[in-house]
Design a binder for these strands. Structure first.
Lengths: 248, 248
DNA sequence: GAATGTCAGATTGTCGGACAATCTTACATC
DNA sequence: GATGTAAGATTGTCCGACAATCTGACATTC
């Protein structure tokens, strides 16, 4: 309620629609620390399970302990880290059950978005097209697997945006964040992202043809495939970790 | 991922299934402060828009400012309060757009739950029945409107539990929390909750008959009615506030 | 008279230090 | 082998302090 504590402020006092494109960074230190931690987690610099010590992070980042604490609390509510009372927070470790749940949940949200396609606002439909174009463009440009993941997940978020519901989009973004964590942990080993640009183009084609049931069925298959791929990679990663453990 | 920082811990070290029913309150001071604030908000003690000053709350609750800050951060992430940079946090004020979004979003989640009825686990189905029974029981017992709201919303959460997805349930609980806030603000004026026990019984009957499409259609109507009722009450409340403002 | 500059008060954002409570680990004891 | 004890580390909570920022009132300038 009373949403939008966002940056851009359209103040009614300033009459002319001037001063567009001017923005000031209103981010707090806590936000920047949280951003840095997220980046490190997504980039695989922080392996899953790694403890995030408050004092160490504070001195390392040049901020105070309360600031780090607040940032860690953010990560915890986002599901990127877990807090065990009196034991501190550590990077969350994706387990198969979590991945399965993530995929089931996002199927519900993305399916809702696809169903809304006919009634969706033109702007939302256009956003689906542009995010897909950005994805395929990145694929053709031979972008790194991290950027490909970004673009890929952005497309799936844009599907939920078809519902026009900010809260559903927020929920999807939360799911995608956790998924990104899982992917980051997986891709520390297999440093590649599937090229699924064609697959997604096919999905969009079905939508453009107003074939909603077809798009739904397509989405079900696509997400099932994705789930299977992630689980397989996760399994492979667990095996390697186990063999590394016994070898030691 | 690696969920459950919950209270009950099933430790594999203790062999006999003894010590059941023994629990220790592991809640932190922050949690208790947050609980108290939620209660005050839901009970209408704190009107929407009321600023939540850190120092005042700290001295009033007998805790330190950092503790209050952390609790307020929790409320903000839950959507029960909003933080404006350098201006502090205040109780969120439900506006019509938010209510519409909440209803649209929960329709997606609850509809997903209803669709899952045939494949849902027996325990989940049983939970729907028990929460409905608790609701109707409370209605017959002439419970207060607060308890009725609790039971009513619990039923709608139980519908999402049919999906078997913890994350979807968490999302629904978040939506319901915001809805509770809106209802609390509305009911400061009209201190009554609709008796919708019969309506919900009808929904369950459709499910028991495995008439999923019927249940879906029923749910759409029911949620549309609920949305309309809340919006009307909200409108009425806004009018009273306006007239009170001009009268002063 | 409207826009702008300035100041004081209030509140938050961030910091540093401090201490108690708790967990872990290792060691000692029965 | 189970239990008790001590040390070290880490978190949970608190206090005090200061800078940054917002608000509002007042003075200034054109």
């Amino acid at each position: 309620m009373t949403a939008s504590r966002t940056s851009t402020q359209d103040d009614p006092r300033v009459d002319p629609p001037l001063y567009a494109g001017l923005t000031v960074d209103h981010s707090s230190t806590v936000d920047r620390v949280a951003d840095e931690l997220r980046r490190a987690v997504f980039d695989g610099e922080l392996e899953s399970g790694t403890p995030l010590r408050e004092v160490a992070l504070a001195s390392s980042l040049g901020v105070s302990r309360p600031t780090v604490r607040e940032a860690l609390a953010l990560l915890v509510t986002e599901g990127l880290a877990v807090r065990e009372p009196h034991r501190g927070v550590s990077v969350a470790s994706p387990d198969p059950d979590s991945v399965r749940d993530l995929c089931r949940a996002r199927l519900v949200l993305e399916d809702a978005g696809v169903r809304h396609w006919p009634q969706a606002e033109a702007a939302a439909r256009e956003r689906v097209r542009t995010t897909l174009a950005a994805y395929t463009g990145a694929v053709r440009a031979g972008a790194g697997y991290r950027e490909l993941n970004e673009r890929h997940l952005a497309f799936h978020v844009s599907l939920v945006e078809l519902t026009g519901s900010p809260r559903l989009v927020a929920a999807q973004e939360s799911l995608v964040r956790e998924l990104r964590l899982a992917l980051a942990q997986v891709e520390r080993i297999r440093r590649n992202a599937h090229d699924q640009a064609d697959t997604h183009a096919e999905l969009l084609a079905l939508l453009e043809a107003d074939d909603v049931p077809g798009a739904q069925a397509f989405l079900v298959r696509h997400l099932a495939d994705a789930e299977e791929a992630i689980l397989a990679a996760l399994d492979l990663r667990a095996e390697e970790a186990a063999s590394a453990g016994t070898a030691r």
